[in-house]
Amino acid sequence: MLKGFRDFLLRGNVVDLAVAVIIGGAFGQVVNSLVADVLTPLIGALGGAPDFSAIKLGPIALGKFINAVVNFLVVGAALYFPVVAPMQELEKRRKKAEEAAPPPPPEPPEEVRLLREILSELRRRA
């Protein structure tokens, strides 16, 4: 039973997933700091306080929802422009370079390989 558990934990996918979760958490902190400490104050400086939590429609706290939507859009922009867009551009360039490169020559037939081996053996003996 412990061997199965060990095998499960050491499978490549589980380890990759664990690393991705840890890196994702750390990256999430970076993005949240970028939004809270850099972009939100910048938006506040340009257009007034970016806090809508005081807006209410009767008993409905509409401002909190607006804050969540604005935060989602700012986080999305903070991820898209410096991370996703450059990665997409790099992927396009890589694919373009692969398409421009000539395809490797096809493998020679078995008979040709055998004849080459025989020829090299004869040259070695001579």
Score class of each variant (00 low, 15 high):
Met1Lys: 09
Lys3Arg: 13
Gly4Leu: 08
Phe5Glu: 06
Arg6Gln: 09
Asp7Gln: 10
Phe8Cys: 02
Leu9Gly: 02
Leu9Val: 00
Leu9Gln: 01
Leu10Ile: 06
Arg11Trp: 06
Gly12Pro: 03
Val15Ala: 01
Leu17Asp: 04
Val19Asp: 00
Val19Asn: 00
Ala20Lys: 05
Ile22Gln: 01
Val30Pro: 00
Val30Gly: 01
Asn32Arg: 02
Asn32Leu: 01
Asn32Thr: 02
Leu34Met: 06
Val35Gln: 02
Asp37Gly: 08
Leu39Tyr: 05
Pro41Gln: 04
Ile43Tyr: 04
Gly44Thr: 04
Gly44Ser: 07
Leu46Cys: 07
Gly47Pro: 00
Gly47Tyr: 10
Ala49Glu: 12
Ala49Arg: 08
Pro50Arg: 03
Pro50Gly: 04
Phe52Cys: 04
Ser53Glu: 06
Ser53Thr: 10
Ser53His: 02
Ile55Arg: 03
Leu57Cys: 04
Leu57Asp: 04
Leu57His: 01
Pro59Ile: 09
Pro59Asn: 10
Ile60Ser: 04
Ile60His: 04
Phe65Gln: 08
Asn67Ile: 05
Asn67Ser: 06
Ala68Phe: 09
Val69Ser: 05
Val74Arg: 06
Val74Trp: 05
Ala77Asp: 03
Ala78Leu: 07
Leu79Gly: 04
Tyr80Met: 08
Tyr80Leu: 11
Tyr80Phe: 14
Ala85Thr: 10
Ala85Gln: 14
Ala85Pro: 01
Pro86Asn: 10
Met87Lys: 07
Met87Pro: 01
Met87Thr: 12
Gln88Leu: 15
Glu91Gln: 13
Glu91Trp: 12
Lys92Met: 12
Arg94Gln: 12
Lys95Phe: 14
Lys96Phe: 06
Glu98Phe: 13
Glu99Thr: 12
Glu99Phe: 12
Ala100Pro: 09
Pro103Asp: 15
Pro103Gln: 14
Pro104Ser: 10
Pro105Met: 09
Pro106Thr: 15
Pro109Asn: 15
Glu110His: 14
Glu111Trp: 08
Val112Gln: 15
Arg113Tyr: 11
Arg113Glu: 15
Glu117Pro: 01
Ile118His: 11
Ser120Phe: 11
Ser120Arg: 12
Leu122His: 09
Leu122Asn: 10
Arg125Phe: 09
Ala126Asn: 10
